[in-house]
Structures are given as structure tokens and as C-alpha cells.
Amino acid sequence: MRITCPNCGERDRREFYVKGAALARPDVGAGLDEWHDHLHLRDNPASETKELWYHEMGCGAWIEVCRNTVSHEVVSTRLASGAELGGKR
């Protein structure tokens, strides 16, 4: 499996750590239900999904990877810094 790091180009999967679904952090002041949804519940699609990967053995970038969970095709990648995952403050 190969993942394209926006900084480094295509690299072997073993350079990366994968965290899970790429979801925006709930807004400040969000309640328990929103947090429960964020941390636990998953769409878990059998199709394209967005995940957070970390180029741990490379440049250290956190990356949002759009990937197909059935074919394993990597559709697109971008730096997580552009994915607006921080939630409202």
C-alpha cells in the first residue's frame, strides 16, 4: 500500500501511522452527545472515507487521506491543516 504525502510524494504505507476517521472536533461547549458521536460513532462506509494518517517516519505531517475501504484506492490526500478539523471556538 502506498500513500501520497503532500510534502514527500508517494511513500510506503509502513512510514505512516493511521489514527482513524477524519472528523472535526466538536465546537467548544458541545455536549456529551456530540462528543459521544465524535469519538465513538462511525459512518464506517464501504466506499470512500476520509481518514487521518501521520507521516511518522517521514516529514511528520498529519494528512487527511480519502481512501476507498473496499478497493483500497487512494483517491486524494491533503494536509490535515487544511481540513478544518478544529471545531468552532
Partner: peptide, 17 residues
């Protein structure tokens, strides 16, 4: 050590870019 480093990078890059 490794986990915290990855966590700080996550916070810095993904949550508070």
C-alpha cells in the same frame, strides 16, 4: 514519548493550524 509527540503534532497541525 512517541505517542505524545504524535499527539502534539496532531493538535498543532490538524486542530490548531
Amino acid at each position: 514519548a512517541g505517542q505524545v509527540m504524535a499527539h502534539l503534532e496532531f493538535v498543532r497541525q490538524a486542530l490548531r493550524p
